[in-house]
Design a protein around this nucleic acid. Structure first.
Lengths: 135, 135
DNA sequence: AACTACTTGCAATAAATTTGCAAGTAGTGT
DNA sequence: ACACTACTTGCAAATTTATTGCAAGTAGTT
């Protein structure tokens, strides 16, 4: 883990290890506030902001935008194209894999008169989980 | 236009008409800041916040989240399932239509053990426009 | 063990968003 | 046209969120 951080060009400091470690332990993207709160006492909130920003630029971390909430962050896994499905009632988040983005990218380029390449995408679903749908 | 606003349950006041009118004139989603700036003198920024919030709840306006920028807003067109393609260099935004969301929604439900229904989705593409790709 | 550039925490700023409230006005009924 | 009332607005102030400056601390190196 320290290795990963160094490879990304950073020093493997305690705060960085703490943040990175926390991110490896979550299956859901986390907000700055959640991270800062959990790391309180160990890592200053300002440092969380700075680290997330740096990790993001280095590609270690991905920013996830879901409707109606502040941005959340998760570790990047380069070979994994997963997306999120969010319950609009209870805000539960689950992952799903696969999406027709490559195909859609090609289709979009065909439609477009000013774009020349696709480099990324976001795709998230919103719905109701089995618990909330009965209410 | 005043009619649309009334139908949504609001009074057709000057500030509301100004905001709504501005939104009908843009082909790109706009941020609170952009809107407030353009309507400066006519509409207070606080009012823009409040109106956007109310319009959003009423379904007149859709919130659009694109990477790395604050939320933007555009008028909802119920029969139009368009999405955005964003140049990661110059931030240009273009629309494209159609996306495999229905199909993917079904696939996601199949994968999921806790979700029961899909009610919405986001899908946006990032890439380079013809101008920026040559740089 | 010493060195140095990168990091961190704390305090202070700045920016974004929300709230309270008196004054203004659209829509209604007269 | 006039008055009435609930909905709206603008302004100021409070909150919340994010950024910056800088002295002190520390990882990685010599």
């Amino acid at each position: 883990m320290a290795e990963t951080i160094r490879d990304a060009g950073f020093r493997a400091t305690k705060p960085r290890l703490a943040l990175f470690s926390r991110l490896t332990k979550t299956s859901r993207p986390m907000s700055i506030q959640e991270l800062a709160q959990e790391l309180a006492g160990k890592v200053d909130q300002v440092t969380v902001y700075r680290m997330i920003d740096a990790f993001k630029k280095a590609g270690l971390v991905r920013e996830v935008h879901l409707r109606g909430v502040r941005p959340k962050y998760e570790l990047t896994d380069p070979r994994d194209d997963h997306h999120h499905i969010v319950c609009t009632e209870c805000r539960k988040v689950e992952d799903f894999v696969g999406c027709g983005a490559e195909k859609m990218g090609k289709e979009a380029l065909r439609q477009s008169r000013s774009f020349a390449a696709i480099t990324g995408h976001t795709f998230d679903l919103y719905g109701l989980c089995k618990e909330c749908i009965t209410k």
